Measured scan of single mutants.
Amino acid sequence: TYYTVKSGDTANKIAAQYGVSVANLRSWNGISGDLIFVGQKLIVKKG
Rank of each mutant, 00 (worst) to 15 (best):
T1N: 10
T1G: 10
T1H: 12
T1A: 12
Y2V: 10
Y2G: 04
Y2L: 10
Y2E: 07
Y2Q: 07
Y2N: 05
Y2M: 09
Y3V: 07
Y3M: 04
Y3T: 03
Y3D: 01
Y3C: 04
T4P: 02
T4S: 07
T4Y: 11
T4G: 02
V5S: 03
V5A: 06
V5C: 07
V5I: 05
V5D: 02
V5N: 00
K6H: 07
K6W: 03
K6R: 10
K6P: 01
K6Y: 03
K6N: 06
S7F: 14
S7A: 14
S7L: 14
G8E: 06
G8D: 06
G8M: 05
G8Q: 06
G8C: 04
G8L: 05
G8A: 05
G8S: 06
D9V: 02
D9C: 04
D9S: 01
D9R: 00
D9M: 02
D9I: 01
D9K: 01
T10P: 02
T10C: 06
T10Y: 04
T10F: 03
T10V: 04
T10G: 03
T10H: 04
T10L: 03
A11P: 15
A11I: 15
A11F: 15
A11K: 03
N12Y: 15
N12T: 15
N12Q: 15
N12M: 14
N12L: 15
N12C: 14
N12V: 15
N12P: 11
K13W: 12
K13P: 01
K13N: 10
K13T: 14
K13A: 13
K13F: 09
K13I: 10
I14A: 00
I14L: 05
I14Y: 01
I14T: 01
I14Q: 00
I14S: 00
I14E: 00
A15T: 02
A15S: 06
A15Q: 02
A15H: 02
A15V: 02
A15I: 03
A15R: 01
A16F: 09
A16L: 12
A16G: 08
A16M: 12
A16T: 10
Q17I: 13
Q17Y: 13
Q17M: 15
Q17G: 06
Q17A: 13
Q17E: 12
Y18P: 00
Y18W: 14
Y18A: 07
Y18Q: 06
Y18N: 08
G19Q: 09
G19P: 00
G19F: 06
G19L: 07
G19W: 05
G19A: 07
G19R: 07
G19S: 08
G19T: 04
V20H: 02
V20N: 01
V20E: 06
V20F: 04
V20K: 00
V20P: 00
V20W: 03
V20M: 09
S21A: 07
S21D: 09
S21T: 13
V22H: 04
V22G: 04
V22E: 09
V22I: 12
V22T: 07
V22F: 05
A23I: 09
A23E: 15
A23F: 08
A23D: 14
A23S: 11
A23C: 10
A23K: 09
A23T: 10
A23Q: 12
A23Y: 08
A23W: 08
N24C: 15
N24V: 12
N24W: 09
N24Q: 15
N24E: 15
L25W: 00
L25Y: 00
L25D: 01
L25T: 00
L25K: 00
R26Q: 13
R26V: 14
R26S: 10
R26C: 14
R26M: 15
S27F: 12
S27Y: 12
S27R: 12
S27C: 13
S27N: 12
S27I: 13
S27L: 15
S27D: 15
S27A: 14
S27G: 09
W28C: 05
W28P: 02
W28Y: 04
W28N: 02
W28V: 03
W28L: 05
W28E: 03
W28A: 03
N29F: 04
N29Y: 02
N29I: 03
N29L: 05
G30D: 12
G30K: 11
G30N: 15
G30T: 08
G30E: 11
G30H: 11
I31W: 07
I31V: 07
I31N: 04
I31Q: 04
I31C: 08
S32H: 13
S32W: 10
S32P: 08
S32I: 15
S32F: 11
S32L: 13
S32G: 08
G33I: 10
G33W: 06
G33N: 11
G33T: 09
G33K: 07
G33D: 12
G33F: 09
D34S: 09
D34E: 10
D34T: 08
D34A: 08
D34Q: 07
D34Y: 08
L35F: 13
L35V: 13
L35C: 12
L35E: 15
L35T: 13
L35W: 09
L35N: 14
L35K: 13
I36S: 02
I36L: 14
I36V: 11
I36N: 01
I36W: 06
I36K: 01
I36Q: 02
F37M: 09
F37Q: 10
F37T: 10
F37K: 10
F37S: 09
F37L: 09
F37R: 09
F37V: 12
V38Q: 07
V38S: 06
V38R: 05
V38K: 06
G39N: 06
G39V: 04
G39P: 00
G39A: 03
G39L: 04
Q40W: 05
Q40C: 07
Q40D: 06
Q40T: 07
Q40R: 06
K41T: 12
K41P: 05
K41S: 09
L42R: 00
L42P: 01
L42A: 01
L42C: 04
L42K: 01
L42M: 05
L42D: 00
L42W: 01
L42S: 00
I43E: 05
I43N: 05
I43M: 10
I43P: 01
I43T: 07
I43V: 10
I43H: 06
I43S: 04
I43D: 02
I43A: 05
V44Q: 00
V44F: 05
V44Y: 03
V44D: 01
V44W: 02
V44H: 01
V44P: 00
V44L: 08
V44A: 02
V44I: 14
V44G: 01
K45I: 11
K45S: 14
K45Y: 14
K45A: 13
K45Q: 12
K46F: 14
K46R: 12
K46V: 13
K46N: 12
K46H: 12
G47N: 12
G47Q: 12
G47C: 09
G47F: 12
G47H: 12
